[in-house]
Every structure is written in C-alpha cells, then in structure tokens.
Design a protein around this nucleic acid. Structure first.
Length: 695
DNA sequence: GAGCACTGC
C-alpha cells in the first residue's frame, strides 16, 4: 500500500509559493511503495505526476473545506484522486466519493479506467451516471457523473448528503452546469461543514476560484471543526506533456485559412514526420482548407505527396470520424483540420505539430433581441495553451500560432467568457427555482450573468405559467416543467398536450427537436434530399412533417433501407425512438395521459403554440423576400431554406430555434393562428401593449 | 435557395 498521511500523525512538509498560497510538497515527502495485487497498474499509477503529491493532497483535503487542484493533462488527477480518497477512508461508513465531468463520454471512459485499475466490475464499487444511464449500485464507493446529473440529484437531495467528497473536474471550462454547481456547492458547505470539495482545473484561474470559495462562514461554526481552514488550499501538479516550441507569425495575417494551408506545406517540407492538427473555426473554413490542400496535392505533387488531409467536426458521419482515428500509414503524414472539438472533447494520437488560427466560433446571447448568435471570435490565452498542448502528447512538438507574439501577450484575454454570460438563461433559471433558490438575482455566482438576461428568462418563464407573480414555481405546472430534462418550452408543449389529447404525437415532436437533424447531411445531394422531404412535407410546417416521417419509419419496421431511400438518417431515427421512450416514461410519471389525436392536426399545432408562443413571428406585409418580424422584439427573421415552409411563407408562425449567419434564420417552423397567442399567453400578448400589432 | 463551435439534463 502506498504511504499517505493519516490524521493525527506528523504533517507532511509543505512549501508556500511566492505567488501567493500555492502549495508544493517538498521532495523528501514523496514516497514509493511496494504495491500488491494488480502490480502493473500499481506501477503505472505511481509513475503519474500526481502520485508524488498524494500525501500532501490527502493532508490538504483533511484540513481544508475546499482544495483546488491545478493540473495539466496527463497529470493523472482525474483517475487517481478519487482512488486516493477511497484509500484514505473517505468512502467508509456508506459515504460516496463523487467526481463530475462536463461530458458523458469522459464520465464513461474515466469510470471504466478506474474500475480497471482497482480490479473491480464497473457499476459496483466504481460506477457512473449519465442521463438515461445509471451504472451504479448500493455498493458504489466512487461515482463518476456529469455535472448536470449532480444538479438533477440535488432536486431530490438538496444537501447531497450521501457524498463525503465532491470533486468538480475540468472546472476551467466554465460550462453553465459547472458554474451553477459551484454556486450551489458553496451554499451546501455552509450547511455541511464536513463536506469536502475538490475543484480541479487546468489553468491558473485558481486564484479567482479560491476567492470565490473563501468568504464562507466567518464566524459560528469554528467550534465544530476547529482544524478546518476556511481558505481553500491550492495544489499544483505538473502535467506529463512534452515541451512544445511556440512559433508566432511576424506580421498579422489577413487570411488565416490561406496562412494555415501554407504552414501545413512548410511543415511538411521542412520538418520530420509527425501528424499535424490545424484549428479553424467551422465546417466552411475546414472544407475550404481541405480543398486548397487537396488541389495543392494535385497540382504540385512534390510538395504535398504523402499528405493525408482529413476534416474533423461534430457533424461528420461515423465512417468519416473513424478515418481520423486510424493510425497514419508509414511514410505518410496526417493533417487533421478541426474545429474546437479537438481542443477538449477528442484527443488525437500522434500529433506533433499544431497550427492555431487564434479563432473559434463562440455563442453570444443578446437579451434585447433574445437571440443567440454564433460568431467567429478570438480565443483566450487559456485556449491557445490548450491547443498548443495537443502537440506535446507523444514527443516534443511545435505550435505555429497565426498571430503575433505581441498580440498574444498584450491583447489576448487570459480566460474565455464563462458560458453563463453568453447564453439564454431560461433552463438555468428554472433549475435554480426548482432547487429552492428564489432570489436568482442575488445568487452567489462564480460569474454573474447580466441582469437583463436573467430578467428576460424570468419573463419567459412567467409567460409560460411556470412562475407566479412572486417568481415562485407554480404548482403543479412549474414543478412538472422543471422535472422534465428538456428546454422548458418543449416541456410546456408536452404538458399542454395532455389536455389537448395529443400526447403521443407531441412526444414524437419533442424527441425529434432534441436531436440535431433527422435528415442525412451531405453536400451535393441537395436536390434528392429536397425531393425526399416533399414526400413527407405538411402544410402545417416542420413539426407535422416530423410526425409523417416517424409514422413512415415505424411502418417500414424501422428499416435502415427505408431511411436510406428517403434520405433520412437511420441513426438519428433510432435515437428519436430511444429518447421518445424515455420522455414517455417521464410524462407518464408526471400524470400525462398517453393519447393520440389520430388525424386531428389542429390540436398538435395548438400544443406547439402553447410551448413556443414566445417565438411567434409575423410575415411582413408587402415583403417579397419572406421577411418576418418577431412579435416580441421586432427582429427581422427569415424561414430557413431547410424548412418545409421555406418560400411558402404563411402569415403567422412559431419557430423552435434561430441560426444566425448573414441573416437570422428560423429552424423548425410551424403555422399558427394569431388568435391563439392571446388565448395561450394573455399577459404576454396584451392588446394595449407594444404587441398591439396582433390586430 | 442556404448552411449548424461544443456540451448537457
């Protein structure tokens, strides 16, 4: 068994860092161990950088309410820390150690790795929970879960009493769920002094995180836990990456796609073998770069022979993604041209060179227009470092930044803007309300969203009938909407379908709206796809069209050939069936009667309107271009060309979402009657208000 | 007649 500090024995020595509070373990305190049982795993575990901080870490956790661990990729913190905690007894007496991740895939991967290292069956001592999948048992000691799942668990157990330690991993990514979780955990700590928090982050943002967690309970509880430090401890663990040499351009580049292509060819010409990873912003940029490189390979065989050029973005089919992960043949060089997906979600093997455009697509929310925009924006220093680090996984690498050093040093922001400050907050606010946080504006956030965004969210939830005049959840509707793990507008639509007698149809629509697209996505088959769509198209809009597709899919016996013939994505349809089944169970639990309206499409349209009336739009009179204006904020919007209502341009519609490019396009559009708006949302669409245009 | 960074419950 490895040596570690036990409460009541002499403390390990700790050195205070001049930077202010960063603690390092002195070399003498590190130890080796004989190990037993799974010897090869034990040896591997001891070689991880985090291992020599084991004793210090356990000491800090024992003596501090919150411990912040700063560690780069490859430090081993995610897989080792939960095991150290278990070995030190934090899972004794029926308590559980929790470790959260922002992504489902990471949860599963880390859980199975830890189970393997411990020599136990996944789902028993080591388990995991993600949405729609619970692989835990009563004997689970270490539990991995997404931060969203932990938030859901708080609805049933607000103090998370079964956990002794909660580790929030990848906190630097600052997803909405992580930020809400951090705010709530800080509150829980006040009520549960024995709870330990571990905040794990890849960047030195630890300082502000530390400031966030140290204002706790100045007086009062000292008597109970005299030894517990109020100020968070910070532990830095080095990564195991190799050195990455950074190159900057001397002068700013005007065209980063062209610059990236030239750099690829330069590396291929001058540098030894090793794969190249290029970070661009989106599908368009990536396809352009792939085309340029492929043309170069054709025209100038000498400079680009041996290059395998591959695009990488989330919309790729399975087969295309498998190409990315196949090993590079001897004598060849792989060039992967990617979005941000390769920055956090996917790790590629064999990358030695990284080309960083300095840009990514980022979401921004405008509470005035109530529209989320996806725009190309400069990345942060933290992102730039993360991207560069991708070059040092197998051997020392190089990173070529397509911006100047002066720009990096003086102009690039240290950190990105937290997602919560760039998003529509409807889902976030209802979740806090369901957890009993009544004063949303006064909530202690790690980063506060703008009051305008919060007010906009409260307004929409009020109009949906989810919140009452005191901004409290209504019963039963508000609590029911909060219970369904979907966007509140979709949840409201499902619950409204009960009284309208069309829940079977609306559950199908909800499931389809929850996935990206049911159509096959590939350029160059547009005409065929459009023709196929016409076979299912309904005059009432996309939602009813989805019903026709779903009905056809079931009638075909869920046939993949049928999907293929009709340009429908078979995997997407399987997912629709799966999600629909999950939603059906939840709806039934909430007392929704399962009923089909058969062919009475009017009630289905009404249910859609009852969820999405806030997204109502009217066709501009005399507009020849199909210009609509949103009823609430008078924004100029258009029906997306992928909609079955494109060019049909009915006078009144509601949309599910908006995509912004050169114009704002409504995706998934349904026709409505204007009289329904005042009927379903009388407060929202008052006759005398700014919405008098309803006449 | 045009196009969707990435997650998650």
């Amino acid at each position: 068994m490895a040596q570690f500090w036990k409460p009541g024995t002499e403390k390990p020595r700790l050195i205070d860092d001049e930077e202010g509070g960063v603690l390092f373990l002195s070399a003498s305190a590190s130890s080796s161990s004989s190990g037993y049982g799974f010897a090869s795993f034990e040896k591997q575990r001891q070689r991880l950088p985090v291992y020599k901080y084991r004793t210090a870490f356990l000491y800090l956790v024992e003596t501090h309410a919150t411990t912040i661990v700063v560690g780069e990729t490859g430090s081993g913190k995610t897989t080792q820390i939960p095991q150290y905690l278990k070995e030190a007894g934090w899972a004794d007496g029926g308590r559980v150690i929790a470790c959260t991740q922002p992504r489902r895939l990471a949860v599963q991967a880390v859980a199975s790795r830890v189970a393997e290292e411990m020599g136990v069956k996944l789902g028993e001592e080591v388990g995991y929970t993600i949405r729609f999948e619970d692989a835990t048992s009563t004997g689970t000691l270490i539990k991995f879960l997404t931060d969203g799942v932990l938030l859901r668990e708080m609805m049933g157990d607000p103090l998370l009493t079964k956990y002794s330690v909660i580790m929030v991993d990848e906190a630097h990514e600052r997803s909405i769920s992580t930020d809400i979780l951090l705010g709530l955990l800080k509150k829980i700590q006040r009520r549960r002094p024995e709870l330990r928090l571990i905040i794990s982050s890849a960047t030195i943002e630890a300082k502000s995180m530390s400031a966030f967690f140290q204002t706790r309970r100045r007086r009062g509880l000292q008597g109970e836990e005299p030894a517990l430090a109020m100020e968070p401890a910070i532990l830095s663990v080095e990564g195991r990456g190799f050195n990455v040499q950074i190159h900057y351009v001397e002068d700013p580049v005007s065209d980063y796609i062209q610059a990236a292509v030239s750099t690829v060819l330069l590396i291929h010409d001058k540098e030894p073998f090793g794969d190249i990873l290029v970070f661009l912003t989106g599908q368009d940029d990536i396809e352009t770069a792939v085309k340029l490189l492929t043309e170069e390979a054709r025209d100038n065989r000498k400079s680009s022979s041996g290059l395998i050029v591959l695009p990488l973005y989330s919309g790729l089919s399975r087969a295309e993604q498998e190409l990315i992960f196949s090993p590079t043949p001897r004598g060849k060089r792989k060039v992967v041209i990617s979005t941000n997906i390769a920055e956090t979600s996917l790790t590629l093997k064999g990358i030695v060179y990284v080309i960083d455009s300095g840009f990514s697509k980022q979401k921004f929310y405008n509470p005035i227009s109530d529209i989320e925009n996806l725009v190309v924006a400069p990345i942060s220093k933290a992102s730039a470092r993360q991207r560069a680090g991708r070059a040092g996984r197998v051997r020392p690498g190089k990173c070529y930044r397509l911006y100047t050093e002066e720009y990096f040093v003086n102009e690039m922001a240290a950190e990105g803007i937290p997602e919560i400050q760039r998003s529509n907050l409807v889902s976030c606010v209802i979740q806090l309300k369901a957890l009993g946080i009544d004063n949303i504006l006064g909530f202690d956030w790690p980063a506060s969203p703008s009051p305008e965004s919060m007010i906009r969210a409260l307004e929409v939830l009020y109009s949906l009938g989810v919140l009452d005049d005191d901004a409290k959840l209504t019963a039963p509707l508000g609590f029911q909407v909060a219970e369904i793990p979907l966007d509140p507008m979709i949840s409201k639509m499902i619950l409204s379908s009960d009284q309208l007698g069309c829940s079977e149809e609306v559950l199908t629509i909800a499931a389809v709206l929850s996935i990206q697209s049911i159509w096959v996505s590939s350029r160059g088959i547009q005409k065929e796809l459009d023709e196929a769509k016409l076979r299912f198209a309904a005059a009432e809009g996309d939602h009813v069209t989805f019903l026709n597709v779903y009905k056809g899919f079931l009638q075909s016996g869920k046939s993949s050939q049928w999907c293929h013939r009709n340009y429908i994505n078979y995997h997407a349809m399987k997912k629709v069936v799966d999600i629909r089944e999950q939603l059906r169970r939840i709806a039934q639990r909430l007392g929704v009667t399962l009923k089909s309206c058969d062919n009475d499409i009017l009630v289905v349209r009404k249910a859609v309107a009852m969820g999405f009336f806030a997204n109502a739009c009217r066709l501009e009179p005399f507009s020849h271009e199909g210009m609509y204006k949103t009823v609430r904020t008078s924004q100029e919007v258009y029906i997306h060309p992928s909609s079955v209502l494109f060019r049909v341009n009915p006078k009144w519609v509601v949309y599910h979402s908006i995509v912004s490019t050169d114009r704002q396009y409504m995706r998934n559009v349904a026709t409505i009657e204007p009289s329904w708006l005042r009927e379903v949302a009388p407060h929202f669409y008052r006759q005398d208000g700014p919405d008098a245009m309803l006449h």
